[in-house]
Simulated scan of single mutants.
Amino acid sequence: MAGKRLLFFAEAVTLAHLARPLALIEKLSETDCEIHLACPTNNFRQFLKDFPYPVHDLDSITPAKFRRILDWGLPLFSKARLRQYIKTDLGLIEKIQPDVVIGDLRLSLVISARVAKIHYINITNAYWRPEFCPIPPLPCLRPFAYVPHQWVEPVYRRLIPSIFASHARPFNQLRRQYGLLELGDDVRKIYTNGDTVLYADVPEMYPDLPMPENHHFLGPLLWAPPVPEPPWWGEVPDDKPIIYVVAGTSGSAQAFQKVLDYMSNLPVTVIAALGHKQAGVTGNLFHAPWLDGLKSAQRADLMICNGGVMGCHQAAVAGIPVLGICANMDQFLNMRAAELFGIGRSLRQDEVSEGRLAVGLDKQKKEFLQITETNLSGNVLLEVIESKKTP
């Protein structure tokens, strides 16, 4: 590869959207590519202390605001916010002059990259394709926190097409202003748009999904935070089943505390990444702020997570089932694919209770499939970068 300059846009409103670009960058470290990373100046920058490439500040909403938006079912972007994102994108592209831009949830690139006439690689997930699940599961929404979701579901199913259209409207309005064609009235078409679209998913989980010529599967993207093992790592007993619990950066602290409380009365050992709590041991709970997810999954018999795709891939590669405590649409869609493939089960975050946890854990006793980690992700990305420069 003749030293192409790559600019990664990591819209790190959750850690996963920084972790996936970092996993790909690690696979490119043996090449002669010139790598640049743009990401927000939030708490996730702590994982870039030893990052060997230039890091550029990226205008972005905060993780807390992102969670509020999801909780209330609001559009991610107003027209004004999207216009500011485009201005930031174009400024970075002008400054760095990359050959290719690679975005993870940086949805503004469906406009800015085309305006700059530069090839846009979109890292996303196959479950956002409308063909996978035309009517997605109802997420946990704060306006309906005290209403049974079974009552809300019929209304939601009728309204979701117009809701998706309202979320897509700012993108289509600004694309028209920049002389670009609209992308349709379903925001999922924006989530899965790019000159090249790369799905950070296991292709076998989507056997019937039609694949356009410029869409490719990366395979599982595995990444671990660069943190030392906690002091108790070598002292975890193995005489009882080990449950690995991780809420991630978008899981509800309250819901996962219910999980930990329930586990405290079971004949199991729990290892947990809690994000906010210093490493220690409390009863049968061994906890730390951050853990290597794959190593933890390899020690465990079951993972309980927020239903995010990276956690599910860690569990599958380690050969253990996963119980997803889901809240937002992304998590529900991912767990829908996991359930169809036979590697996990899901629970609604707003219905977590001892009884539902008991039922969910019991269902995990069945056989499940195992995914083998491959280097597919690096190979596909290299091929795309080598062959593409501009749209």
Score class of each variant (00 low, 15 high):
L291V: 10
G280C: 09
R299W: 09
V281C: 01
T282N: 12
R299H: 06
A272V: 00
K295M: 05
Q298C: 09
L294M: 08
A288F: 04
T269F: 06
A279N: 08
Q278A: 14
G280A: 07
A288E: 06
H287M: 11
Q278V: 15
L285Q: 04
L294Q: 01
A279G: 06
P267T: 02
H287V: 10
W290K: 15
I271W: 00
V268T: 04
H287R: 11
A273M: 06
D292S: 14
A272Q: 04
A279S: 11
Q278G: 15
L294G: 04
H287W: 06
A297G: 10
A273R: 13
N284A: 09
A300H: 02
V270C: 05
S296A: 14
A297P: 00
A279T: 08
P289Q: 14
V281A: 09
P289W: 09
G275F: 12
P289N: 13
G283I: 04
N284I: 09
V281E: 09
D292C: 13
G283T: 04
V281K: 09
Q298A: 13
A297M: 06
W290Y: 12
L285F: 08
A273E: 02
G283D: 12
W290S: 11
L285V: 07
V268D: 02
K295Q: 07
L274Y: 03
A273V: 02
L294P: 01
A297Q: 04
S296Y: 09
V270A: 01
G293A: 10
A297N: 01
A288R: 05
A288N: 07
G280F: 04
R299Q: 10
R299N: 01
Q278M: 15
G293F: 14
G283N: 12
N284P: 05
V268Y: 00
A297Y: 05
R299A: 09
K295D: 11
Q278T: 15
A279M: 11
A273W: 02
D301K: 06
A273N: 11
G280R: 05
A273K: 01
G280I: 08
A273G: 07
A300Q: 02
P289R: 06
A288K: 03
A272L: 05
A273L: 00
L274E: 07
P289K: 03
G275D: 08
G293E: 13
V268N: 09
L294D: 05
W290L: 15
A288Q: 07
H287C: 13
L291I: 08
R299Y: 07
S296G: 11
V268G: 02
D301A: 09
V270Q: 00
K295W: 06
N284V: 08
D301L: 10
Q298P: 12
